[in-house]
Design a binder for these strands. Sequence first.
DNA 1: GCTTTACCTCAAGTGAGCTTGAGGTTTTAT
DNA 2: ATAAAACCTCAAGCTCACTTGAGGTAAAGC
Lengths: 154, 154
Amino acid sequence: MLEEANLSVGKVAKRCGIKVSSLHYYESLGLIKSLRNNGNQRRYKREVLRRISVIKAAQKMGVSLEEIKSAFANLPDNRTPTKDDWQKLSRHWQQGLTQRIAYLEKLRDSIDGCIGCGCLSMKNCPIYNAEDKLGDNNTGAVILERTITNRFSE
Amino acid sequence: MLEEANLSVGKVAKRCGIKVSSLHYYESLGLIKSLRNNGNQRRYKREVLRRISVIKAAQKMGVSLEEIKSAFANLPDNRTPTKDDWQKLSRHWQQGLTQRIAYLEKLRDSIDGCIGCGCLSMKNCPIYNAEDKLGDNNTGAVILERTITNRFSE
DNA sequence: GCTTTACCTCAAGTGAGCTTGAGGTTTTAT
DNA sequence: ATAAAACCTCAAGCTCACTTGAGGTAAAGC
């Protein structure tokens, strides 16, 4: 059959440039699946390679494993995901990345003035509102809410 | 004297929008300093406010506390840092941020093709080399080396 | 057949950046 | 004067994304 699952953990790990322990970990989170041979060793279908590269790509885009997991949950589970399925996911994440890039640019361009400005009071700081919620609902004296590593899809 | 240190932890925390425990933590790392009153409670100079806002801004730019600490180590320690001192720091970090933004844009723009492409072999992947080290020293089969949260100033 | 390499599970450790809690003291408000 | 709020220290806990290690089994190479 075409569906042979004959890749060992070691081989998959090597091809993907990750450690065996990561594969175990991803499996424990339900991000990837494996079958077992007679000796209880994991055997993977080729499909897992793309799945892992998608995981890696998503991580680079700032997506957490939790989010990747729930995105994967929406994949058709009756068939192997197609190129199109994967691209739909990646496009969603791309949008998030675009937003974050915009945020970082805004941050970069205003930080200089901000550090030099009188916003020690931390009110009216240009960066205070340099976020998505530009709605001007100033309710405190909190600057710079979002961190660079934060999620974008709350 | 002008140098009165009369801000309590609680007040500083509130004004900066952080928790008292963070102030303790920053102090334990040597990022900020405090004096003590008769009852052993921390009292801060106003200067600390700017210092904290710089910390927060740097974090948003993706700079680790370690890096912030070593950047602070280069500040003149015989006098209170001036606006200029702070701006020098922030400009350095801005450059890093600019680089990272460029990386993220490259990532965003190539990820779609990559997910759809035949790079399951993970060689010759456009993203594999989409980094700083464009020198084409392909020595393995590792894609997408850098993570979104990574440092830029190694 | 034997040895080396690869694999298995499960628990615990890592690092960054904090937070929480216990047990106790000081300051502030009434 | 007393109660409440704020503060103190120190150790331990938390989240994320893994890694490491112990103790043991399976597969591959010669």
